[in-house]
């Protein structure tokens, strides 16, 4: 299951009425949205939305019926067990050699404030300001130790660009933390603190 599907399922399952609705579905052979809504004292659109969402996730089957009136759907449970399995590897930062050779440096007049750790051997946080005037907001990003060491060795705005892998080598950071380095580089690139050659 991908993260978006899991997120949708989680959202509906967490509704107050979800257990009661599933209770009807597991006990009835099939049920329409109006029957379920009247049974649980819900608005018909609430029940309709829930049942449609479950059908779209493949948990229910729906069948169109018409009994001398306009057609409507009847829903029945397709499976009695709902399992949610998410492969977090799918959302891990894609590590590629292409990314590691990108040359970067701090952007001139980035307007970010770097705070050094007490030992002054690495950075502890980066503060960024976004927006203008009253909309101006401060965002402080606390750094992990490898991120702090990496940014400590980030070339200055007037220095030559260096590749991510070269900076990591200078900072004596292990390759295993590459994803968190990519993550902070990506974020600071988004906020115009880091520029890519």
């Amino acid at each position: 299951m991908d993260f978006k599907t899991a997120s949708k399922l989680g959202n509906y399952i967490s509704k107050d009425y979800a257990e009661d609705l599933f209770g009807l579905l597991v006990n009835y052979q099939d049920i329409s949205a109006s029957e379920a809504a009247s049974r649980l004292n819900l608005h018909i659109s609430t029940a309709q939305e829930f049942l449609e969402a479950m059908a779209s996730l493949g948990i229910l089957t729906r069948k169109e019926v018409s009994e001398k009136k306009r057609p409507y759907f009847r829903y029945s449970l397709k499976q009695r067990i709902i399992s949610m399995e998410i492969d977090l590897g799918q959302i891990a930062k894609r590590q590629s050699e292409m990314q590691a050779v990108r040359k970067i440096r701090e952007k001139e007049n980035a307007g970010a404030r770097f705070s050094t750790a007490r030992s002054h051997q690495y950075l502890s946080s980066v503060t960024i300001w976004t927006g203008e005037g009253r909309e101006r907001k401060e965002r402080k990003i606390n750094l992990t130790a490898p991120q702090g060491k990496f940014l400590y060795h980030l070339p200055f705005p007037t220095a030559d660009h260096l590749s991510i892998s070269d900076i990591m080598r200078k900072a004596e950071i292990d390759d295993t933390v590459l994803p968190e380095i990519f993550d902070i580089v990506e974020l600071l690139e988004k906020y115009d603190v880091i520029e890519v050659e």
Binding site: A110, T116, L151, F156, T158, A159
Partner: peptide, 13 residues
């Protein structure tokens, strides 16, 4: 010799 500014408030290794 250069006069390119580039001030940043962080230590330089």
């Amino acid at each position: 010799e250069g006069t390119r500014d580039g001030f940043t408030a962080r230590p330089h290794p």
